[in-house]
Computed example of a mutant assay.
Amino acid sequence: MSTAHPPTAAEDFAGYLRAYHADAFDGTDPIDEVWSRYHLPDGEHQVNGRNLDRKKILDGIRSRRSLGAPYELYIHEVIVEGRTAAARYTIGTTMLWKVQSATHVTLFAELAEDGRVASTTGFSSSRPGWSGPGGEDPFDAAARPAPGTAIAPPPAAGAEPTPAQDPTHYLRAYYTAGYDPGVPVAEAHDHFHTPDALHHVGGKLMQRSAVLKALEEGRKHGHSYPVEVHRSLREGNRFAARYTTSRDGKPSRSQEILAFGEFADDGRVKLVRFVLDPGYGAA
């Protein structure tokens, strides 16, 4: 049975994710009708650097529905600004007892004027895992700060923006300072992050000492990592960005990264999660 009066992605992005997956996986309506209910029919969708046409998308949904297997949807994070949304979520499919096949999805979506999803870009990876949200608190829309939440006072005229006021500035400036041998490595970290900031890099949790060590290692080899930010958005004290960086500016070493973060009251970052392209480095 399809979801009654399902929310559009523009009205409630988390609600859209729940309604769409329910209709696609458990519903009985034709797959093409389900897809068009929530997405523009001719929208562009990219997963792990590959473009998926409408046929591939619908075939994938049919295959998933044909399994008839129960699933659990865990929404970890949703950030919306204007007509752009970013989200992280996991789809768990039971395999045996509490062991699941967990598909981790991170995406950026552009929303159409009618509220449907116009296009998406993101990463998806699957692996066995235990039933449950994976140690993360579930997303709670009621706990989201108001879009105009103030974190740090506005800069004076002509002053450089603080990280909290511009996620794009944070990424560009942090990568530049982090690999600049003329800037003390601790200063490069602490200017942009609180001392107790947590960094999740490709699934690995790193605290300040580990981050400093990684920066020092990169400097030892003389590496630089210029950043090109494709999209960034902020909602209250949380932000998300999609960007590309490359070792020493070489196109052959480029890697797309999706970042999700949270700012402290003083404008520095207290939590940042760098989600790496699952196919990076693959032959």
Score class of each variant (00 low, 15 high):
Glu11Pro: 03
Leu40Arg: 02
Ser36Pro: 00
Asp32His: 14
Asp12Cys: 09
Asp29Glu: 13
Pro6Asn: 06
Thr28Glu: 15
Tyr16Arg: 03
Arg37His: 04
Asp26Gly: 05
Phe13Gly: 05
Pro30Asn: 03
His5Tyr: 08
Ala10Lys: 14
Tyr38Glu: 10
Asp12His: 12
Tyr20Phe: 14
Leu17Met: 09
Phe13Ala: 10
Leu17Ile: 10
Pro7Ser: 11
Thr8Trp: 11
Ala9Thr: 01
His39Arg: 09
Pro6Glu: 09
Glu11Leu: 08
Tyr16His: 15
Ala14Thr: 00
His39Ala: 04
Pro41Arg: 12
Pro6Trp: 07
Ala14Ile: 01
Ser36Arg: 03
Gly15Asp: 00
Asp32Gly: 07
Ser36Gly: 01
Ala19Trp: 04
His21Pro: 02
His21Val: 07
Glu11Trp: 05
Pro30Trp: 02
Gly15Tyr: 00
Ala10Gln: 11
Gly27Ser: 01
Ala24Thr: 07
Leu40Val: 13
Phe25Lys: 12
Asp32Asn: 10
Asp32Arg: 13
Ala19Pro: 06
Tyr38Gln: 10
Ile31Ser: 13
His5Met: 13
Glu11Asp: 15
His5Asp: 15
Ala19Gln: 07
Ala22Asn: 13
Phe13Glu: 04
Glu11His: 10
Gly43Phe: 03
Ala24Phe: 02
Pro6Gly: 12
Ala19Phe: 05
Asp23Tyr: 04
Phe25Glu: 13
His39Asp: 06
His21Ala: 11
Asp12Gln: 09
Glu33Thr: 13
Pro7Gln: 13
Tyr20Trp: 09
Ala14His: 00
Tyr38Phe: 15
Trp35His: 08
Val34Thr: 15
His39Asn: 15
Glu33Pro: 03
Leu40Glu: 14
Leu17His: 06
Val34Cys: 12
Ala24Val: 06
Asp29Thr: 08
Asp12Asn: 14
Asp23Cys: 08
Asp32Tyr: 11
Trp35Glu: 01
Tyr38Cys: 08
Phe25Val: 14
Ala19Asp: 12
Leu17Ser: 06
Pro41Leu: 11
Gly27Val: 00
